[in-house]
Amino acid sequence: MGAQKAIVVGLSGCSSSGKTTLARLLRDIFPNTFILHEDDFYRPEEELPVKDGLVDWDSAESLNIPEMEKALLHIRSEGTFPPFVDSKEDKNSVGPCPASDEKITAMKAKVSAWLAPGQPGHSIFFNSELAAGSTPQPTLRMCLLDGFLLYSPPKFSGIMSLIDIKFFLQVSRARATQRREARDGYVTLEGFWKDPPGYVDKIVWPNYVHAHQWMFVDGDVEGGKLDWEKLHEEKVVAQKPHGDSSEGSDFDFEQTLEWAVEKVMRSLEAWHARR
């Protein structure tokens, strides 16, 4: 098997936890980066499960997991976006950016310095064995895998094994509901989907709780206390609250962006050191 040509970084969490927004910003901050959306692996609507009389878009059964695994294998071996994936997610509307231009510019400068010759990022992404005067060429790309069910064993165990670095974003039920209900809808294979009234309470949140109980203390997702020991065992990285020891699931987005940029750099360094 040849050298891995792309590193896969997972960004997972409940629907409306900020995954896609963060992925798009990280793509702009880190060069040679592209996004693969879990939402691009939905099965046709007529094949989706039905729960309480509603089409269930938020369960493992709604996704073509083998096709997602195939895409990740292609990315790791070829370093390119899979030609057999037709992205619908990128056609969905994007709300106002929750990070200021100043913060984004500062993060770009931080990553640029990290990628400079002689710095840790340079040896990760560029070929250092070039003749004098040659322009360094990227030898590694980064794929950001954005999805709401990436860390849900056993059904996603194969997917988890293909993700090199795993990030989990928390969000409270109240904020997830407010954000999801504010969306105008989603582009689908068949056309367009708009959540019916009560969809978050009946479908989205119960499915999220069921799939993620393993990573919370006593399985209490509502309580929001992450089980850091279990996360460590599965090599999942999550944001810790600042200040006292109290837990919190809603974070200021600029703090999350700064945390994510720092964690991506440190995680890439650790990944590179293991190779």
Rank of each mutant, 00 (worst) to 15 (best):
D146Q: 12
I104V: 11
M142N: 05
C97I: 14
G95C: 03
G147I: 11
Q119W: 03
G95V: 00
L149G: 00
D101K: 12
G118K: 01
M160E: 06
P138W: 00
P117S: 11
K166Y: 00
D146N: 11
A131N: 15
S112Y: 02
S123L: 08
L115E: 03
T105N: 14
Q119A: 14
M107I: 06
W114P: 10
E102Q: 08
L169T: 12
L145G: 05
T139H: 08
F168N: 03
G118H: 03
D164F: 07
T139S: 15
E102Y: 02
T139K: 15
S157C: 09
I159P: 04
K103A: 15
S123P: 05
I159S: 06
F125K: 00
K155T: 12
A116T: 14
M160L: 12
L169P: 03
A99H: 01
A132Q: 13
N127W: 06
P117I: 05
T105V: 07
I104D: 03
S152E: 01
M160Q: 13
C143I: 11
C97F: 01
F148Y: 03
K108A: 08
G121C: 00
M142R: 06
F126Q: 05
V111S: 04
K110S: 13
E129N: 14
P98C: 07
P120W: 06
I165Y: 01
Y151Q: 14
S134R: 12
F126A: 09
I124S: 09
F167C: 00
F126T: 06
I124D: 08
V111R: 07
P138H: 03
L169F: 10
T105G: 06
K166T: 04
L130E: 10
I159E: 01
S100R: 05
S152V: 04
C97N: 14
S123F: 00
A132L: 10
A131L: 15
L144P: 02
L149E: 00
P136A: 10
P136W: 01
G147W: 09
S128R: 12
P138Q: 04
W114Y: 07
S123Y: 06
F156S: 09
K166W: 04
T139D: 14
Q170K: 13
S161K: 15
L115S: 04
S134V: 13
K103L: 11
H122F: 12
S112Q: 12
Q119I: 04
L149P: 02
S123I: 05
T105Y: 05
C143W: 00
M107L: 14
F125R: 03
S112F: 07
I163F: 06
M107D: 04
P154K: 08
A116W: 10
V171Y: 00
Q119R: 15
D164S: 11
A131D: 14
I124K: 04
E102P: 04
S128T: 15
Q119V: 04
N127V: 09
F126P: 07
V111E: 12
S157M: 07
K110D: 10
I104H: 03
G118N: 07
Q119G: 06
M160G: 11
L130F: 00
I163D: 00
L140W: 06
P154Y: 07
P154S: 09
A109R: 13
M160F: 01
Y151S: 11
A132S: 10
S112P: 00
